[in-house]
């Protein structure tokens, strides 16, 4: 599945929910299932400070593809991280750097990526892309 197909799959999954609370129940479950970053790996350089919640992002580059692990102190933020990683993990740096993450607004979560939300998610997406750009320029 490419980056666009993965996003369309998520949009389809979200179509079954009738109301906001069901949607958030699902996001919370995703957050609970996402592997945690160990406390020792929650270092300053991995931290993306939001005014409300904080995000830690760890990325590495293997066989031409990017891999991410991320965590947050807020479970809803973490659930949305889970969705972002599902879309972007295992992709080539170039696809990540140019990715249009259209699924976020399609499933009604654009407020979480607004600059005023201050939950660290927008900063996380920026850093994901920056990491990808670094690997493009390195290769």
């Amino acid at each position: 599945m490419n980056l666009i197909e993965k996003q369309e799959e998520i949009i389809q999954e979200f179509e079954v929910f009738d109301d906001w609370m069901e949607k958030y129940e699902y996001i919370i479950d995703l957050g609970k299932d996402l592997p945690k970053i160990t406390e020792t790996n929650k270092t300053e350089d991995r931290l993306i400070e939001g005014c409300q919640s904080r995000v830690w992002l760890d990325s590495n580059f293997r066989d031409g593809k990017m891999h991410f692990t991320a965590d947050s102190d807020a479970i809803i933020t973490k659930g949305i991280i889970g969705l972002l990683i599902r879309v972007l993990d295992g992709e080539e740096p170039k696809s990540i750097a140019t990715a249009d993450l259209f699924f976020i607004s399609k499933i009604g979560l654009q407020e979480h990526l607004s600059p005023t939300r201050a939950n660290g998610l927008l900063g996380m997406v920026k850093r994901l892309k920056l990491e990808a750009i670094k690997h493009i320029s390195a290769s």
Binding site: W20, M21, Y24, I28, Q52, S53, D73, A74, I75, I76, T77, N119
Partner: peptide
């Protein structure tokens, strides 16, 4: 064990 941001988000949707 619960972040205030999560409670606020769910209250908003209600």
């Amino acid at each position: 064990g619960i972040h205030p941001f999560d409670i606020g988000t769910l209250l908003d949707k209600q």
